[in-house]
Amino acid sequence: MLVIDGISAYYGGVRALDKISLVQEEGEILALIGGNGAGKTTLLNLISGIVKPTHGTIMFKGEDIVSFSPEKIVELGIIQVPEGRHLFGPLTVQENLEIGAYRRRRRQNKKKISDDFEHILQLFPVLGKRLKQRAETLSGGEQQMLAIGRGLMGRPLLLLLDEPSLGLAPLVMQEIISIIGRLRQEGTTILLVEQNARAALKIADRGYVLEAGKMRLQGSATDLLENVELKKAYLGNRS
């Protein structure tokens, strides 16, 4: 579904990614692991078209999308839920969700969009109670749910999740993780960027490890969980 081949990019004059390649199959959850500044977010922004590479190609369903504008990429079904959530704070919860479906306003009928809206409220019942509230008044966990909900309103074929657990209490984090699991059951392909490598690998099919802009390791999630080197660096000492 997604094939990234030899991509390099600069960020603020520094080489952020160096000849990265990555393959993702349809229906797969891929975990992208790495420390701060490893280039994970840059990679997501490359896919979303916000950052442009100096070399390499990004093929989505057989089409090179490197030259596409961000809105065109959203239209293809690649939707990113950005790190730090980036909600539209002064807008209401409902408005945030509506804007998630902005690209679908002409192509698809209102019925489908409102069905998705109902579906998301089932997925995140707490949002249903807060529809008229401003997004900035929500708690951290609720904001993350809204961010994911907004992404889902775009009917993603490929969902790019950037650090969904960042700054959340463990209990809330568990809830988010379980929702990601549910999304997979519904057939959404997910590229998950996480610092919490253990949690990510537990629900992922395969994983990639980025370090200082280079691809260090890749393999199935179970293999990576057992990898000695990785344990030291990212998984802590708990087995």
């Binding site: 979303s48 916000i50 504008s69 961000p70 809105e71 959203v74 239209e75 939707i79 990113q80 950005p82 980036h86 909600l87 539209f88 704070g89 002064p90 807008l91 804007i99 998630g100 902005y102 690209r103 907004r150 775009g154």
Partner: peptide
Amino acid sequence: VNRRAAALAGIS
């Protein structure tokens, strides 16, 4: 409110 998030939501 947020240009980047708007672009990621498919707004030109």
